[in-house]
Computed example of a mutant assay.
Amino acid sequence: MISYLTPLAAAFLIIASSMVILTRRDRRRMDDGGPDTMRIEESATRGLRDTRRRAHVYRDRFWREHE
Rank of each mutant, 00 (worst) to 15 (best):
L22E: 11
D26G: 07
M30W: 11
S17T: 07
D36P: 00
L8H: 03
E41Q: 13
L8F: 06
M19V: 01
G34M: 02
R29N: 13
A9Q: 07
A44Q: 14
T45R: 15
S17Q: 04
E65F: 09
T37S: 15
L22F: 08
W63N: 14
T6L: 14
R52Y: 05
T45E: 13
A44R: 15
R29L: 11
V20W: 06
M30C: 03
I40D: 10
I21R: 14
D31E: 15
P35A: 09
P7K: 06
S18D: 04
D60V: 04
H56D: 13
I14T: 05
M38L: 11
A9S: 10
R64N: 11
L8N: 05
I2A: 13
H56E: 15
T51W: 08
R49T: 04
D26K: 15
L8C: 06
D31Y: 07
A16Q: 09
T23F: 08
E42F: 11
R64V: 01
A55V: 06
M1D: 02
R28A: 14
I40G: 01
L13P: 00
R61M: 11
G47L: 12
D36Q: 10
S17P: 00
Y4I: 05
P35S: 08
E67A: 10
R52H: 10
I21H: 12
R39L: 09
R49L: 03
R29S: 12
R46D: 04
R61K: 14
H66I: 13
A16I: 03
G47M: 08
A10L: 08
F12K: 07
V20D: 05
